[in-house]
Amino acid sequence: MSSMLGLGVAVMPLQFCTSPKKETAIAELDKSKLDKFGIQLYSIKEDMAIDPQATMRALAGFGYKQFEGFDGGKGILWGMQPAEFKTLLSETGTTMIASHANVFENLDAQAALAAEVGMKYLICPWIGPQKSLDDYRKKAEEFNQIGEKLKSFGVKFAYHNHDYTFVDLEGSLPQDILMDHTDPALVDFEMDIYWVHVANAQPAEYLAKYPGRFKLCHLKDAEPGTGDPHQRGVLLGSGEIPYAELIKQSKELGMEHFIVEQERFPSGTPMDAAKANASYLSALEF
């Protein structure tokens, strides 16, 4: 009997060694945070038009480590020379990860500038709704050609979606056509999670459908409802998109760059929104 009791005493600690409190503590230790995140400069386009350097310095002060640009009429370097632009990035401890650009015109010149300042991507932000799936197939082939051209400069190509590629056309999703008819070695994708969500698609399911194809994403939140999709944008964390879950899953599926984009401002200024979104992402655990 005493030997059996001794065995019971020995076994019990193994059975009950993990208490609920310890499990919670372990779970908390397993949580991660984004070590760096970026912002699409279109979010504060008015400020960029007035003083791009001061604006980028302020954004770096909010915690943004990466920038994604766009051509605001002064070119993808906002009127700065490459050396001046690189100095700004060095002084602020940031990188210019990408720029949205008109990739259908002056591609060589833009690619050369992008390469000189260390950009990883030039991104097509818009092709507009096409009339047929064949038209999307033609765009996919054009994307392959653009990707091949950019490859020679050491720059990658990506396409940024809106809602229209997630709306049924001829029994298929146009986004599927673009995914299936582009070469993964030449064409990456930037998922605008907001536009996928308001198109009533499921960002998580779509990311899982094409693992490794989405390397960048736009983060912006949507208020609940079914109204005008252009009028549902809200600050991160105040809408219905489950970003903690999505960021965790997308990282596991190959997502590398998380970029804030704010296009609607229910209150405050665009810079106020940029600061609030940076605070949200800095504190987010997943």
Rank of each mutant, 00 (worst) to 15 (best):
G8E: 01
V9F: 01
M12H: 06
L14M: 10
F16K: 01
T18D: 13
T18R: 05
P20N: 09
I26V: 14
I26M: 15
S32W: 06
L34Y: 14
D35A: 02
F37E: 06
I39R: 04
Q40K: 03
L41R: 04
L41V: 07
S43H: 09
E46P: 07
D47K: 08
M48E: 10
I50N: 15
D51Y: 13
Q53F: 03
A54E: 06
R57Q: 12
A58Y: 06
A58V: 10
A60L: 00
G61M: 01
K65L: 01
G69P: 08
K74M: 15
G75E: 07
G79T: 11
E84V: 01
F85W: 15
E91H: 08
T92F: 08
T92A: 05
M96A: 10
M96C: 09
I97E: 05
I97L: 14
S99N: 03
H100N: 08
F104K: 03
L107C: 12
A111I: 09
A111Y: 08
L113I: 12
A115H: 15
V117H: 15
G118L: 09
M119G: 02
K120H: 12
Y121I: 06
L122P: 14
L122K: 02
C124D: 14
I127G: 04
Q130E: 15
K131Y: 01
L133Y: 01
D134P: 12
K138E: 14
K139L: 04
A140M: 12
E141N: 12
E148P: 06
K149P: 00
L150S: 02
K151T: 09
F153A: 04
T165Q: 15
D168W: 08
S172I: 05
P174C: 05
D176H: 15
M179L: 11
D180N: 13
H181E: 05
H181F: 15
A185P: 01
L186S: 09
V187H: 10
D188P: 01
D188L: 06
D188A: 13
F189L: 00
E190S: 07
D192K: 11
W195M: 10
W195V: 03
V196Q: 10
H197C: 10
Q202V: 13
Y206K: 11
K209P: 06
Y210G: 10
P211T: 09
G212P: 04
K215H: 13
K215F: 03
L216Q: 13
H218P: 00
K220G: 12
K220C: 13
K220M: 12
A222M: 13
D228T: 03
P229W: 00
H230G: 00
Q231A: 09
V234P: 11
S238D: 11
I241P: 07
K251I: 02
K251Q: 15
M255T: 13
M255R: 06
H257A: 02
I259Y: 02
V260A: 04
E261R: 09
P266G: 15
P266V: 08
S267R: 05
T269E: 06
D272A: 07
K275P: 02
K275R: 05
K275I: 07
A278F: 11
S279H: 07
Y280T: 04
L281C: 08
S282M: 05
S282V: 05
S282I: 01
L284Y: 00
L284V: 11
L284R: 12
